[in-house]
Write a protein that binds this DNA or RNA. Structure first.
Lengths: 174, 174
DNA sequence: TCTAATTTTCAGTAATTATTGAAAATACAA
DNA sequence: TTGTATTTTCAATAATTACTGAAAATTAGA
């Protein structure tokens, strides 16, 4: 029989998983993917696909797809145990590493495409004359310059040590 | 008749609007809202709801709703011209201000709720003993501490002058 | 090789989110 | 006030995205 304390802990974990899923939406990732991530973050031992399915009451297809996606983000990794055919998964638990992975992926998905579009617009209007064209070019250039800086910063942050960035950032913005 | 140059400029604007809309998706905002934003950013004069509807071929309800949403984000503002009943809209064109607005809004939507959840989980497991509970508490605490730092940085960045931050950031990450 | 365990795919369906269009509400001028 | 221009709301519908479950593919041991 589960003790009172175990129940309380389980309730907190469930809450965490549920809420992390809801938050996932506002981050633009699907609920299930966020829930699996949360579940693995608070589960000390690696879990199999079946355990994840059972715990979250989701289908095999759904579990498989979102586990792969999380591996793609670098937020979880697959573990193969000797003598076991089944694949297991465990989450990266170091918050700085999680942050770096998310930053890298977000840059790739959200910043790089913007840069491409802006460059294309610059090429397309190169050499055009007239007040209207100039206004357009100016706006696009300002966006492009800003995005380029952002892109650099994200690259640097995502590939640096937490110990180097966080204290600096804290001092910078104190 | 439109000159070759005018056509080229128009094509570039259309491309920008279309692509910005597509990118909006990956940012978690709906396509139409992103398109309206793009359109207003590259249109020198304020536009009426009808002009936006006409340009993007969307319904009045859709236009109205997304214009309001953009006003809510602080990315566009409504203009009332004397003698005109119609409301006009113009975009904030200063990239740093755009960035601040987006940062503020993203913090409110994406960071604040995470903080709430983490605090709730901490409260819920306060005082629990045992290895499992401790592991959970440790993980949640690390997330909470990190998110708190992030939250502070976003607040500071979003309320500072570009001239103060960008040079510093550039030096920091050179 | 064959067999059985496991993973992946994907067509069909469910759930969610975005959009329309027209009616209702509002705001303004006369 | 009343009439008209304008904005807002919202139920119905369309479009998109997520999920299921079972079949197909893959993998590894015998």
């Amino acid at each position: 029989m589960a003790t009172k304390q175990q129940e309380q802990l389980q309730a907190a974990k469930d809450e965490f998983v549920t809420q992390w899923g809801a938050i996932g939406n506002s981050w633009g990732v699907n609920r299930t993917m966020a829930q699996i991530h949360a579940l693995l973050m608070v589960t000390p031992d690696p879990m199999s696909t079946d355990q994840v399915m059972e715990e979250l009451k989701i289908s095999r297809g759904n579990a498989n797809m979102n586990l792969r996606e999380l591996v793609g983000w670098g937020l979880i990794r697959s573990i193969v145990r000797k003598g076991e055919r089944k694949e297991f998964f465990e989450a990266e638990k170091d918050v700085w590493k999680i942050f770096c992975m998310v930053t890298r992926e977000r840059k790739r998905r959200e910043i790089d495409p913007v840069q491409d579009v802006l460059l294309r617009c610059q090429d397309q209007t190169e050499g055009l004359k007239g007040a209207e064209a100039q206004a357009f070019q100016k706006q696009i250039k300002e966006l492009a310059d800003f995005v380029a800086t952002t892109s650099n910063i994200m690259d640097k942050v995502a590939s640096s040590q937490q110990s180097k960035i966080v204290p600096l950032a804290s001092k910078l913005f104190k």
